[in-house]
Design a protein around this nucleic acid. Structure first.
Length: 100
DNA sequence: AAAGTGACTAGAC
DNA sequence: CGTCTAGCCACTT
């Protein structure tokens, strides 16, 4: 079972804020959320997104270097391509990031 | 309680 | 460009 705690809720809110055609890295989200809750960890953001993926545009969240997670790389690349992002192999260009 | 694991990151080579 | 290393924090065994 899994309950939505404050941290997960904050991560959710940030992910929902990402506009179509743009992406954010786990670390970037961790920085925003961590600034409020004092927790911080890109790995914890990734864990939350993985567990709560349903109903969340998780495909707009990826690694700092623009690469996808191996488990979902194919699906993520396909979705991002549909958003108008120039997906190149298993990565996206830096221009796709919301904040640079 | 200690050690292992991971949808991570930044820096070094 | 690429690969490797050390640091990181919460969860699992």
């Amino acid at each position: 079972m899994l309950e939505i705690d404050e941290y997960a809720d904050a991560v959710l809110a940030v992910v929902e804020t990402i506009p179509a055609g743009k992406v954010m890295s786990y670390g970037q989200i961790a920085a925003v959320v961590g600034a409020d809750l004092g927790r911080g960890g890109p790995r914890q953001v990734a864990r939350v997104v993985r567990d709560l993926g349903a109903g969340v545009p998780w495909w707009r969240v990826l690694r700092a270097d623009g690469s996808f997670a191996p488990e979902v790389a194919t699906r993520q690349g396909d979705r991002l391509r549909a958003e108008g992002i120039a997906v190149r192999g298993d990565r996206v260009p830096r221009t796709a990031f919301l904040t640079v």
